[in-house]
Amino acid sequence: MKKRMDKKQKNIEIDMRGQVCPSTMLVALEAINKYGDELHGGMEQLCILTDNREATNTIPDIAVNMGYAVQVDRQDSFYRITLSCAE
């Protein structure tokens, strides 16, 4: 999936490293719900930092069903899941 990133876009980062499912999922969903409209509007993009490998499957699945574009990038010791407005 392609990540949309224009200059005016605001980046919101949620660091959930150290947390495991299902709380990771619930926190992520809460954030998505909170910023959902802005994400859809393309004004913001949401970055979730997690070291929980399972979350790299579950969060993208549900985010795609909500209509967001998702990208998972592996960092040194964690994953960056980026949600943005689908094209």
Partner: peptide, 21 residues
């Protein structure tokens, strides 16, 4: 924490997306 609220809100968004789709 209200997980039910969180999940139902997520479902609402999923449904909205499904409708749009």
């Amino acid at each position: 924490l209200d997980p039910i609220g969180i999940v139902s809100e997520s479902f609402r968004r999923i449904l909205e997306n499904s409708r749009a789709t």
